[in-house]
Amino acid sequence: MTMQTWWLFVVTVFFISATPGPNMMHALSRSVQVGFRRSTAAMAGCISALFLALVLSMVGIGAVLAAMPRLFDVIRYAGAAYLVYLGIKAWRSSDDATDATSGGGSESRASAWSLYRNGFLVGISNPKLLLFAAAFFPQFIDHHKPVLPQFGILLVTYLFSDTLWLSVYGIGGHSLSRFLSRRPVRRAFNRLTAIVFVAFGVVILRAKA
């Protein structure tokens, strides 16, 4: 892998990571609910899921899913159901800003492990990630040279880019929380969050292996 190829990869994943998706929306909403510092546990869960998906793609799981549509469908339905569940949960969450910021709400009392676990589930709920990684990574690897070191470089680059953008969305959520002190505004934010998560679930549900 040449330096030019690596830079092309950097630019590509920078914009891929910046694109709003379930992980970014989760980081933003968690930061609003529990604050930026505690939301980093949820971000760590998202990153762990990404790491696992990328490693699995390297060992050929993406090809297995592509070759076994029924298995892909099971994972796809489960992922879509979880995102829809998050949407329903957001829709029904408290509209009182003090519940989410002063410790009165269940979200603000969530443990670091709970935040991490939920972030991981959001991150791993998209089976298309495995197929994407399996098709995307080989485009930047020179198979005439040792593959493992190249994959390591690409993996670290991708994780760094995603962590950067998760932090940006998290900081944005923390800043946004200042404007959510009014009940109508917070209600609108909760409803928008719910709609976005359900929409992501529908997109995954309609995906094809």
Rank of each mutant, 00 (worst) to 15 (best):
F51P: 04
A110P: 04
L54T: 12
G103T: 01
T98V: 10
R37P: 03
W113A: 15
T101A: 10
L50D: 10
S17K: 05
L50C: 11
G60P: 07
S39I: 01
G87C: 08
M43S: 13
G79W: 04
A49Y: 00
A44K: 00
R70S: 15
G60S: 08
A112E: 09
A53K: 08
A78F: 09
L50I: 11
G119Q: 03
D99E: 13
S111I: 00
A27N: 07
S102W: 00
D96T: 11
C46N: 11
M68L: 13
S94A: 06
T40S: 08
I16P: 02
P69G: 04
R92P: 04
G87Y: 05
L71T: 14
N23S: 12
I75E: 13
A41Y: 06
P20M: 04
A27P: 00
S57Y: 00
A90I: 05
Y77V: 14
D73T: 15
S29K: 09
G62Y: 02
L52T: 06
I61V: 15
R109I: 05
A112P: 03
M25W: 11
A66Y: 11
N23E: 05
V32R: 02
T101Q: 10
M43G: 08
A41Q: 07
Y77A: 13
L71P: 05
M58A: 15
L71H: 06
L86F: 06
A18Q: 02
A80F: 07
N118G: 08
N23C: 08
S39V: 01
L54V: 13
I61H: 05
M58I: 13
M25C: 14
I75V: 15
S17R: 04
A27T: 11
F120P: 01
P22R: 00
I47Q: 06
L52D: 00
G35R: 03
I47M: 12
S102D: 10
P22F: 02
A63D: 14
A41I: 03
A41F: 08
M58R: 13
L65S: 05
M43H: 08
M58P: 01
D96C: 12
S48M: 11
T40A: 04
F120W: 07
P22H: 03
P22D: 10
S17G: 07
S57Q: 04
D73N: 15
R117Q: 09
G79A: 06
C46F: 00
A67K: 08
G104V: 01
M58S: 13
L56P: 01
A90D: 11
